Amino acid sequence: MSGTSGTPAHREDTAPAAGRVRRFLRQNSLGLFFLVTFLLALAGQAVAGHARFNDELRGDGMAPISFGAYLTTSDFAVDVTENWQSEYLQFFLYIFATVWLLQRGSPESKELGKEGPESDEEQMTGAHARADSPRWAAAGDWRGLLYSRSLGLVMGAIFLLSWLAQSVTGVAAHNEEQLRGLEAPTSWAGYLSSADFWSRTLQNWQSELLAVASMAVLSIYLRQRGSPESKPVGASHDATGVEG
């Protein structure tokens, strides 16, 4: 009897826990999906990069390195950071540009005539903050000013840090290639003005900026049913700032 009496209690303990896990997964599925796919893509890049790097070493008559050693190389670091900085530049520019710039008919734009930072009442800040508003949103001093621009500032800071990391790891990777060819290494300042640095940088920038422009313009005329990045399927092409 003692064995059977413990079964319902066990089920009562595990059922709420399982429900909490399912609820957490459902409520955070978008972020978790992109986090998992990011990790998979990063792992795939590491595997492919390791194979390419060892092919280059063999071509130079050098011994290949282990996968773990490759993950600590400047070659791997610069490939990662040069993509990160362009992504965060995209978000930084998009966040600040959409405060003031409009695109007629695009759900990526605010409604026509509503450009600018909007009033405290519209933004629920200061005296217009609600009971459930973030604490700093209600502050009328520097905290409120900082918090009201915190998203763009953090995106900009991550962009600058990842761009700095790209330049540091980039010059290290560049100098490794120079030494293999028995050529003199380059200084960090010299690398910042080199064609290699700007080629790596601009090839990522142009692709990200084109993607944002394409999304803003194509969403005027094309639809994706159920997506907040699209207007409702039956919405007019001229409808602006409307999400489906």
Rank of each mutant, 00 (worst) to 15 (best):
S109Y: 02
L102Q: 11
Q206N: 03
L42N: 13
V212T: 11
A139M: 13
V233M: 04
A173Q: 14
R52Q: 13
S236C: 03
K231W: 02
G190A: 11
V242C: 05
A17Y: 06
A127P: 01
D141H: 13
N54V: 13
Q85K: 11
L182N: 09
W136F: 12
E177Y: 14
G49C: 09
S74F: 13
S230N: 09
W84K: 03
L93P: 00
R23C: 00
P107Q: 06
Q178S: 09
V21H: 01
L161T: 11
R104S: 11
R52F: 15
V154I: 12
F38L: 09
G3Q: 13
D75G: 07
G190D: 10
M215N: 01
F197K: 07
R11Q: 08
D13M: 10
R223Q: 14
T169E: 08
E12W: 08
I95S: 11
S187C: 08
V217G: 01
E115M: 13
V171S: 13
N204C: 11
V36I: 15
W136P: 02
G241I: 02
P117L: 15
S194R: 05
A46R: 06
A77D: 06
A172N: 13
E229P: 00
A138W: 02
Q123I: 10
A127H: 03
D55R: 12
R23N: 06
V171T: 15
L218V: 15
L210R: 04
A48F: 10
D120Y: 06
G152D: 02
Q27H: 06
S207T: 05
W205E: 08
A9R: 11
I65A: 09
A9P: 00
F76I: 07
S66I: 07
L182M: 06
E176H: 13
L151I: 03
Q27A: 05
S199D: 00
E243L: 08
A239P: 00
Q90G: 15
T125K: 10
R135K: 10
R26N: 04
M124I: 06
S2Y: 01
D75S: 13
F24V: 05
V78T: 11
S74E: 11
A51K: 09
N28S: 03
R11H: 02
S214D: 03
G31T: 00
H50G: 10
V154G: 00
P228A: 15
Q166N: 15
E208I: 00
L30R: 05
L153K: 07
T81H: 12
E121V: 12
E243I: 04
P232I: 10
W136Q: 05
A195H: 07
N204T: 10
D132L: 06
L153G: 03
A41D: 11
